[in-house]
Every structure is written in structure tokens, then in C-alpha cells.
Design a binder for these strands. Structure first.
Length: 655
DNA sequence: GTAGGGTTAG
């Protein structure tokens, strides 16, 4: 067939629609070949369209590189549209900086001025990197080329400066916006929230003459990111009252808020809401669901969601793996990692944090070492401080304190508080006072006001009944003005989260709670439970110690759960500090005695671990301390004994 | 023919 007749056929079949309908890289390559043979690539518009179709094709990661080749080999100068398409594609990719080489080529061409689109995409790239140098250069160039007043460029700049943590800069940009509209106002709400100015963000939000779903989502997410989960949920409620359309992004923030509060009922409600409103179950939304269930201690449901998802990305796998380790199921986490590898999903640094923690939780030291090596040599990932902390924890928990210390000394980077904290934590478990003192010294050098570290060391002294040592630590804390974070347990009842602090009598139903506490103590005694009082920090009478243990925040929350939740409903507690040994054991007993499933929900295992060491009475000066973390994998304190326990209560509306 | 604001894991 001569090329002229092919050209006729191609022109008749409309090359643009051919490009639009090509779904895969292979099909795009075919169209490319046809255009080439037909001589149609001499047409700048068609060349641009081909480059754009390839660059923005999501089907194949190689398509973008192919787009670049097409552009490089073209006999004619590409249009600005073609260049913009490449910059745009890179701005959305994992290599946003690559877009700048095309900007340089645009300038080198000498006759092709960049336009408003060019700068919009470059601004997005700078925000993605994120780089102050690139950002400032892009902003400067946009001003020089006369696009500083472009609305798209400006809102992009607001977003970019927020990413770079430069509030003065985004404020200045916003001041220069001629007529702030919905988009630039929303960008400001997000920017303020991101830089911690949440109240200012709310003022801006309240003052907006018009608000769409994106604006609402921005405000809700702003609260959520700053840990103000209750306000996020309150705003979500308001959003519904205003008849605003809720979408996937809204629900992702809502689920995140439920996860942070450990509010399983509200999380379940959100799940039902998603299904009833037929919101599209995107990978992101599914992943948020898994995270919510995992952080609320319902790992079974989390895995149900995981297995029913049609698509899973690295976030999905890492979230599930993290949930399993958080819930004490280290071996399951490693099993999931194996499946992930089988499916050809490439792990990243965050995945390996879960893998190493999984090994730590499961006590698999050698395996952990293998994974650490694998991460570097096979996956070519540079270990982060977190990974080193995990390794110290891995050795430490297994009682290999010398190896843990050796590992710290061999670290190629300066050991951080996390690494020393993991060592200190291990010293606590294995009662090594000397090494514990050394670890604390190192921690204090790095961070003089680390309350968790002081508490750990005083607990180590207490283990050996060294009251002088414990006292000294306490005096030292006083002298340095270091205050221990108080233990706080939360329980959700009737869609509302109730918080209890140590020795907290402020709850409206405290009278009933106190009665139940007495009942719990009585039945525990009858059942033969002996409180772990040998570890109590100060030398007080046995009976008093036992009494003091009753006041731990988790016990208060359990008592409240027992009086306020229907029989058969699981009692779920979320705690800020690690559950103490006595409470862990007592909870097992209580679960049996009261025939209740009790789940004490984990917080992510942190390095250094924050350990409970409660004050019975803030003024009495008598401390009751608690012991090492529960042995894995028993974070699910009680087994499912009650068949009613798995039937979920009807979903409740938030608030 | 392209564009600006909101969403996931440690």
C-alpha cells in the first residue's frame, strides 16, 4: 500500500480517535507506527497528541519513556503542548524533577516560550519533590514570564509553599490573588492546616461564601492530620446536615479519625455508610478501612476487607502487615509479606518497618537479620533510623543485649533516641540496670526531656527493689521538669468515646464505676488472682498496692464497659501507653470471670516504647509502676469465648 | 488538545 492511500485511510479513521481509543502501550505503539508510515507525524498537532497519549497513559510505566523517545526522534520541533504533556506526566510520577529537563529544552529551543500550563505543572513538580530551590526558581520564572497572576499558578503555589512549610510565602501569594475563588480559598485552608494553623484554617473556611465537597474535605482532613479526630467527625456530621455530597476522600478522613480514636462503632458505621451510599471502593478507601479496623483492634474484619479488595497496592499490603504486627500477629505479618512478594508487589521502606517489627514480635531474630540484609542487597533500599531501631528491638526483645549494643555501635549513622530507647526497653525486660543507665544517659544527651526513658529506668530499678535508684530518677525528673505522660484509656460506648485517666473520678457515672471496680477486685480475689505487686515502685503495704493497681486507666475503662455495654458486646479499650503487666493478666481473668471478650487495642509499637508507670494519686507521691509489655502475640487479651462476641451492634450515627 | 484546591501505610 502506498503511503498516500494509507494517509487517506488514517485521516478517514481519524488518528485522534485512534489515539484516544488505544488502551495499552502496545496499541499506542501500533498507532505510532501507522502515523509514522503515513507521514502524519510531520503534523505538529498529531505529534503532540501522540506524545500526550503516551505520557499520560497509565497502563504501562514504560509509556512515559517511550513518549520521550518519540519527542526526541521527531524531525520537527515539538509544540509547547507536547512538552507540557511530558512535564505534566512527570509532575504526577515518582520522578517529578525530571520535568525540569523539558523546561530547559523549551528555553534552549529559543523560539518556544513556556506558557501558563508549563508553570502550573512545574509548580506541581516542585511541590511534589518537594524542593525549596526548585520552588523558588519556578516561582521566579513564572513571574518573569508574566504568569505570576495566573489563578492556576497561584493556587498551585499556595499548595507548594504549604508543602515546603513556608507560611509567609503562601500568605504573600494569596494576598496577591485578585479575586480569591473556591479553589484558592480551599488551597489556603489546606495550607494553613498543614502548617499547624488549624484555627486560622477554620476561620477561612467559615468565611467562605461558597463551599463544595473539596473544601469540606480539606477542612476535615486538616483536623484529622493534626490529631483532632473529634472535630473532624463533628465537621463530617455538619457536612451531612448541610446536604453536602460526601465522597471517597471524605470517608478516608473519617475512617482515619475513627482509627485514631479507636472508635470501632463509628468506624463500622462509616463502613456501612460507604456501602449504603454506594461509594466506589477505591484502593485508598479500602486501605483506610483496613487501617481503621486494625487500629480499633478488629484485625479479623481488617483482613476480611483485605481479601475482598479487587485491587491492592503497596499501601494496602503495608497497612495490613502493620495491623498484624500491631495486633501481635508477627508470623501472620511475615506470611503476608511472602504472599506480597509472590504477587510481585515491590516492598518499600515502610513495608520493611512492618516486616522487621513482625520478626521482633514473633521473636525471630535470625529471620529479622535476613530481612534487614535483603532490604539492602536485593531491594536496594537504604535503611532509615526506624529500621535500625527495629533491629535493636529485635535483638533486645530476644534478650541479646550485647548484640543490640553491638548493632548500635556498628550503625553507619548517628544512633537516635529510638535505637537507645529500644535498648533501654530491652534492659527493662531483662533487668539490666547497668546497660539501662548507659542507654538513658545516651537518650538524655539527645533529648533531655524524654519522659518515657526516665520511667523505663526507674522501672528497672524497681525490678531489683532498688528504691534509692528509683527515687533518684524521680528526683532527677523533678529537677529537670520532666513530667510523665499520664496513662489514658478510651472506650467507645453508644458511639461516643469515653476517656479515663489514672485515678480519674470525673466521669458522670463514676459512682457506678467505683462499685464495679470493687466487684472486679472481689471476684478477682475469689478467682485466685494475685496482683503483681512485687514490682511496685515504692515500698508500700501490700493491700494498698493492690488497691492502687485497681485504679489504672484501663481498669476504669473496663469497669465502665462492664456497666454500660450489653452482655456479649466486646469491650474494646484503646490506650496511649503500653498496657502494664498486672493489667494484662488481670484483664485475662476479668474476661473469664465476666464471660466477656476484652480487647485492649494496641497503639503502634513505638521506639522507645512508652511504658506505664501510674501515679495512684497525683498528690500522694506514691507511684505504682507496671511491668513489661505483654508477650506477643497476646494483644488480643482474651480468646473468642463468647459466641455473641462476634455479632456486631447496629451501626450508630456519629455523634 | 493540556491546568489550580481534598483522600491511604512507618
Amino acid at each position: 500500500m502506498c503511503s498516500s492511500s494509507l494517509r487517506t485511510i488514517l485521516s478517514k479513521s481519524n488518528p485522534v480517535s485512534l489515539l484516544d481509543s488505544a488502551a495499552s502501550l502496545a496499541e499506542l505503539k501500533q498507532v505510532h507506527a501507522q502515523l509514522l508510515v503515513g507521514g502524519l507525524l510531520d503534523e505538529p498537532r498529531l505529534l503532540g497528541k501522540l506524545v500526550a497519549s503516551l505520557a499520560l497513559s497509565q497502563s504501562d510505566p514504560g509509556a512515559l519513556a517511550y513518549a520521550e523517545q518519540v519527542l526526541s526522534h521527531s524531525r520537527h520541533d515539538p509544540t509547547i503542548f507536547a512538552f507540557n504533556s511530558l512535564i505534566r506526566a512527570y509532575s504526577k510520577s515518582a520522578m517529578p524533577h525530571q520535568g525540569f529537563q523539558f523546561y530547559r529544552r523549551i528555553l534552549r529551543s529559543g523560539h518556544l516560550p513556556p506558557d501558563n500550563y508549563t508553570f502550573t505543572f512545574l509548580v506541581r513538580s516542585s511541590a511534589q519533590i518537594p524542593s525549596v530551590e526548585a520552588g523558588a526558581a519556578t516561582h521566579g520564572a513564572a513571574l518573569r514570564w508574566g504568569f505570576g497572576g495566573d489563578a492556576h499558578v497561584q493556587s498551585g503555589l499556595i499548595h507548594m509553599y504549604a508543602e515546603l512549610g513556608m507560611p509567609e510565602c503562601f500568605r504573600r501569594v494569596y494576598e496577591e490573588v485578585k479575586d480569591p475563588d473556591l479553589v484558592s480559598q480551599t488551597a489556603m485552608v489546606t495550607a494553613c492546616a498543614r502548617c499547624g494553623e488549624i484555627d486560622l484554617a477554620r476561620q477561612l473556611f467559615d468565611a467562605m461564601p461558597m463551599r463544595d465537597s473539596v473544601a469540606w474535605n480539606a477542612m476535615i482532613a486538616g483536623y484529622e492530620h493534626l490529631g483532632r479526630a473529634r472535630e473532624a467527625l463533628r465537621l463530617f456530621h455538619l457536612m451531612q446536615l448541610e446536604g453536602m455530597k460526601v465522597n471517597e476522600a471524605t470517608m478516608v478522613s473519617v475512617l482515619s479519625a475513627c482509627a485514631h480514636m479507636g472508635a470501632l462503632d463509628q468506624g463500622r458505621w462509616a463502613h456501612v455508610y460507604i456501602e449504603r451510599n454506594r461509594l466506589y471502593m477505591t484502593v485508598t478507601l479500602g486501605t483506610s478501612l483496613i487501617d481503621m479496623y486494625a487500629k480499633c483492634g478488629d484485625m479479623k474484619r481488617a483482613m476480611e476487607v483485605f481479601w475482598t479488595m479487587r485491587e491492592r497496592n503497596i499501601y494496602t499490603w503495608s497497612t495490613a502487615m502493620n495491623g498484624l504486627t500491631m495486633n501481635g500477629a508477627g508470623e501472620s505479618c511475615l506470611e503476608l509479606f511472602r504472599l506480597m512478594q509472590e504477587e510481585g508487589v515491590l516492598p518499600n521502606e515502610i513495608t520493611f518497618v512492618s516486616v522487621l517489627r513482625g520478626c521482633s514480635v514473633a521473636g525471630l531474630v535470625e529471620k529479622g537479620c535476613e530481612y534487614f540484609d535483603m532490604m539492602i542487597s536485593i531491594y536496594r533500599l537504604e535503611p532509615w533510623l526506624e529500621h535500625y531501631g527495629c533491629m535493636v528491638d529485635l535483638y533486645g526483645r530476644a534478650g541479646r543485649l550485647d548484640d543490640a549494643l553491638g548493632f548500635i555501635h556498628a550503625m553507619p549513622i548517628e544512633p537516635h533516641v529510638g535505637a537507645w530507647g529500644a535498648l533501654l526497653s530491652a534492659c527493662r525486660i531483662y533487668k539490666n540496670t547497668e546497660l539501662g543507665e548507659y542507654a538513658l544517659k545516651k537518650i538524655v544527651e539527645l533529648e533531655s526531656r524524654n519522659d518515657g526513658a526516665y520511667v523505663l529506668l526507674s522501672n528497672i530499678y524497681a525490678d531489683s527493689k532498688n528504691w534509692d535508684g528509683a527515687n533518684n530518677v524521680r528526683e532527677l525528673m523533678k529537677a529537670k521538669g520532666v513530667r510523665k505522660e499520664p496513662g489514658c484509656s478510651a472506650i467507645e460506648v453508644g458511639g461516643e468515646v469515653h476517656e479515663f485517666f489514672v485515678g480519674d473520678k470525673s466521669h458522670p457515672r463514676y459512682g457506678e464505676i467505683e462499685v464495679m471496680l470493687g466487684e472486679m477486685a472481689r471476684r478477682l480475689r475469689v478467682a485466685g488472682y494475685v496482683a503483681k505487686t512485687n514490682q511496685v515502685l515504692f515500698d508500700i503495704e501490700e493491700e494498698e498496692k493492690e488497691d492502687a493497681l485497681c485504679w489504672h486507666s484501663e481498669k476504669l475503662a473496663i469497669a465502665f464497659g462492664l456497666i454500660s455495654l450489653q452482655e456479649g458486646v466486646t469491650i474494646r479499650i484503646v490506650k496511649n501507653l503500653r498496657v502494664c503487666h498486672d493489667c494484662h493478666d488481670a484483664t485475662k481473668f476479668i474476661s473469664k470471670i465476666f464471660n466477656r471478650e476484652i480487647v485492649c487495642s494496641p497503639l503502634p509499637l513505638e521506639s522507645p516504647p512508652q511504658e506505664e508507670e501510674d501515679s495512684r494519686d497525683a498528690n500522694s507521691g506514691r507511684w505504682v509502676q507496671c511491668q513489661k509489655r505483654p508477650k506477643s502475640p497476646s494483644f488480643l487479651v482474651a480468646p473468642l469465648e463468647n459466641p455473641m462476641a462476634s455479632s456486631s451492634p447496629p451501626p450508630l450515627p456519629p455523634e
